[in-house]
């Protein structure tokens, strides 16, 4: 932060002498302490997972959902300023509607990624607005009959408007652990996307979130899992059903060495969550 305090970081859309946009960088800071969020592709879809820290024990378990649906076949989760995420999802829904009205079919995920990144980028251009304080992971799969090619797509969009496709990606507080785990998984010799089922991907995402939570162990959390897969959900983005959810959580817990006995009432909440 060499240039902090020189005045070039006080307004959006201003370059510093060395060519940086400080306000956009600061917006990224808002993401760094956000909830850990993971997205992973599988052979016929994508899976999302969010670690939801229980900051207040009066919160109703299973409510206050963080993963959202942009269009029937596109799921979305984000880390950072939650209301900013809702704003972006709302824009995504408008784009989806717009596309459908114009072309008569659902928007491909890649087209959505372009539209959303343009929108987010526009918020770095003017000093009358601030950038989005979120990193957004979104993706899905479009069935052939709807003009898609059956290939799942997954993207992450940052506050500066840059958007990249990924096989697996994580953001938020536990991103380092989560990304390391994803890399380990995807680069291992036995790993093959063409055989990874959606259910297996759910297990992996749950395990990775539990692992990433290890650094933050003193806080309780609720896990949110959703998926969009041709075989499991017919190409719709949905929360994973209770049985799959419970199984994934059980396995995740044993993978990180959490015995069943020392759950602090967490299990009850998660059953409720479905």
């Amino acid at each position: 932060m060499t240039s902090v305090g020189t005045g070039y970081d006080l307004s959006n859309s201003v370059f510093s002498p060395d060519g940086r946009n400080f306000q956009v960088e600061y917006a990224s800071k808002a993401v760094e302490n956000g909830s850990t969020t993971v997205g992973l592709k599988c052979k016929d879809g994508v899976v999302f997972g969010v670690e939801k820290i229980i900051a207040n024990k009066l919160l109703v378990p299973g409510k206050n959902r963080k993963i959202q649906t942009i269009d029937r076949h596109i799921g979305c989760c984000y880390s950072g300023l939650i209301p900013d995420g809702k704003h972006l999802v709302n824009r995504g829904r408008e784009e989806a509607t717009n596309f459908r009205n114009t072309y008569g079919k659902p928007i491909p995920v890649s087209a959505m990624s372009e539209r959303l990144s343009q929108y987010v980028q526009a918020y770095t251009l003017y000093n009358s607005v601030r950038p989005f304080g979120i990193s957004t992971i979104f993706g899905g799969v479009l069935k052939t009959e709807n003009g898609g090619d059956n290939k799942p797509e997954l993207f992450m969009l940052d506050p500066n408007g840059s958007c990249w496709g990924y096989k697996g990606i994580a953001t938020g507080k536990g991103r380092q652990t989560a990304k390391a785990e994803l890399e380990k998984l995807i680069t291992s010799e036995t790993f093959d996307f063409s055989t990874l089922s959606a259910k297996q991907a759910v297990e992996e995402v749950a395990r990775i979130i539990y692992l990433a939570h290890e650094d933050n162990k003193d806080k309780d959390f609720e896990l949110e899992l959703s998926w969009c897969s041709l075989s499991e959900t017919n190409g719709f983005h949905k929360y994973v059903p209770e049985e799959v959810y419970n199984e994934a959580v059980e396995n995740a817990k044993s993978a990180v060495g959490l015995a069943d006995s020392d759950e602090s009432g967490e299990e009850d909440m998660e059953v409720d969550a479905q």
């Binding site: 299973g62 959202q68 649906t69 719709f236 929360y239 994973v240 209770e242 479905q274």
Partner: peptide
């Protein structure tokens, strides 16, 4: 579709 936004279909 608007009705399905934020309306969990599995529960």
């Amino acid at each position: 579709m608007e009705n399905n936004y934020d309306n969990d279909e599995y529960s």
